[in-house]
């Protein structure tokens, strides 16, 4: 029998039908997962997973099948060790282990011994559902909603808090990453596009007001370019650090550039402009 404290429940358990038993310890409940041969003790929000093993699990399962009814020792042994021949001591040992797990080793009220008859499981310690037959198939869903016991609601709330925290941290993490990346990136460039004859001019600036000024200031230059252009061309025009930057995109994917000091805007020769154009 292995024990491992875990909070919250393992993911696989969340989908597996279980049966809840009140233990001999105060405010401590046991969730029995027959399919997993596992029992989870829950006390004050702390969950402890206990591996009952095949025999222990089968034994508890058989007792839970008919709570309040006496199950003979032979029946229990046949159910728990179906394919093996074991002595009476193995059954005694498993019963003792189950009682220990359920906090029942002293009072023996949960699993009761009836001398020369067998054992029975006290139905008063079953929380929900009243019998193991009622937990249904693993994937079975409820037809009608059933109110959960208070302690289960408390656990659901606790699990929900973890989920909310996890989701919150994930969202904060992604938002932080995006924010940091956005900050590290260049500011959005504002652009305005204009067709002048056969030219398609794209004006770029980081400031929308300066963008308008750029369009007005370079109107003469772009008009001259439109006259000089012998074939359609795409141009990019911007003003950075006192220089007008004219980028003439070539049809082959390349580009030629012309940088003009702002004081020389009207001094530029036609040959220079023609040299930039494709």
């Amino acid at each position: 029998m292995n024990t491992s404290p875990e909070t919250p429940l393992a993911e696989q358990e969340s989908n597996v039908a279980c049966l809840t038993i009140r233990t001999g310890r105060s405010d401590c409940y046991a969730h029995f997962y027959p399919v997993l041969y596992q029992l989870t003790l829950v006390k004050s929000g702390i969950e402890e997973k206990i591996d009952l093993g095949y025999s222990g699990s089968r034994l508890l399962e058989r007792l839970l099948r008919e709570p309040g009814d006496v199950v003979s020792r032979e029946e229990l042994m046949n159910h728990a060790w179906a394919d093996r021949v074991v002595g009476q001591g193995s059954l005694n040992q498993q019963i003792y282990t189950l009682r220990q797990v359920l906090g029942d080793e002293k009072s023996r009220e949960i699993i009761q011994t009836l001398p020369r008859r067998g054992y029975l499981l006290n139905p008063n310690y079953l929380v929900y559902p009243p019998s193991i037959d009622d937990i249904g198939a693993v994937s079975e869903t409820l037809d009608t909603p059933t109110p959960q016991p208070a302690f289960l609601r408390r656990h659901s709330r606790q699990r929900a808090s973890w989920l909310i925290l996890l989701s919150l941290f994930s969202i904060i993490g992604i938002a932080l990453f995006m924010a940091l990346y956005t900050i590290s990136q260049p500011k959005d460039l504002h652009s305005s596009e204009m067709n002048l004859g056969s030219l398609h001019v794209r004006y770029i600036d980081q400031d929308p007001q300066r963008l308008q000024q750029l369009i007005l200031q370079t109107h003469g230059l772009t008009s001259r370019l439109a006259v000089l252009a012998s074939k359609p061309a795409n141009l990019v025009l911007s003003l950075r650090g006192g220089f007008y930057e004219l980028l003439c995109l070539q049809s082959n994917g390349g580009a030629r550039s012309l940088m003009l000091h702002e004081s020389q805007l009207n001094q530029v020769a036609d040959t220079q402009l023609s040299r930039c154009l494709p």
Partner: peptide, 17 residues
Amino acid sequence: MSQGTQCGISRGWLLTM
């Protein structure tokens, strides 16, 4: 009787997750 219950995460939270 097939009234079933499942210990663990409720359907709403499963969807949220």
